[in-house]
């Protein structure tokens, strides 16, 4: 029996909003330590790796390891039916072919439950190698999302160049060209509002706006984003 409860469903709502544009389907691997999800987008250009630790749930029970193949578009439809402050309970029997989602309103007056068929997805588990990056930039997630959104109006790709002074984002196309330079924050009073750069050596890399704008769908989940970069290595 698998049962996981969140007192507020908004974390899982944000997780679904973060991945549903990149992935059509994915396997939720449930074990007593939590839920792991790892999947590549259809073109294998990006890898989504997600971990929901059991201690992040208000109640978590997983008697036997369970892999739930989810159609994320359908799961997103179900999650849209939950209010942010509803209690969410996800349940599945051990060798089930369905999963149920129950939402309870704060005042206990409204209880909704949704059942979704599970899919048989072939499992490929990829190892994510430890990498020593040339540059690691930590910056406000909202700021990065804003930069990607603004620059994607000017070109299909963004050039990110990082030195110890700061990080520059550039794009150019028919409409013109755009450069956004962020200096490293000198006096760090609020970590998650600062731009912090750890540089082994300068780096200049180019990425498609389409993917950056998909990744920044995860912005509501966290105040800070970390950009780890090296030549010829995935961002």
């Amino acid at each position: 029996m698998f049962e996981a409860r969140l007192n507020a469903s908004n974390v899982l709502k944000k997780v679904l909003d973060a991945i549903k544009d990149l992935l059509n389907e994915a396997t939720f691997d449930c074990s007593d330590s939590g839920i792991q999800l790892q999947a590549m987008d259809n073109s294998h250009v990006s890898l989504v790796s997600l971990s929901l630790r059991s201690d992040g749930f208000d109640k978590y029970r997983c008697d036997r390891n369970l892999s739930m193949g989810m159609n994320l578009a359908n799961m997103a439809k179900i999650m849209k039916c939950a209010n942010n402050d509803d209690t969410l309970t996800m349940k599945a029997q051990d060798n089930a072919d369905t999963v149920t989602f129950m939402f309870e309103s704060q005042n206990q007056e409204k209880v909704s439950d949704y059942e979704m068929k599970l899919m048989n997805l072939d499992q490929e588990h990829l190892g994510i190698p430890e990498t020593d990056y040339a540059c690691v930039v930590r910056m406000p997630a909202m700021e990065f999302a804003r930069i990607c959104r603004d620059l994607s109006q000017f070109g299909e790709s963004v050039v990110i160049s990082c030195t110890k002074e700061g990080v520059k984002f550039s794009a150019s196309g028919d409409a013109g060209s755009a450069n956004i330079k962020l200096a490293q924050t000198s006096t760090i009073d609020k970590e998650d509002e600062s731009v912090i750069i750890e540089m082994q050596e300068p780096v200049t890399l180019t990425f498609a706006c389409r993917y950056l704008n998909s990744f920044t769908k995860a912005t509501p989940l966290c105040n800070q984003v970390q950009l780890s970069m090296s030549a010829d290595v995935p961002l």
Binding site: M40, P129, F207, Y211, P234
Partner: peptide, 14 residues
């Protein structure tokens, strides 16, 4: 136009 390339080769299949 530089295309974003697949990254499968970066992740050894465990």
């Amino acid at each position: 136009k530089q295309r974003q390339t697949a990254i499968t080769s970066f992740f050894p299949n465990t």
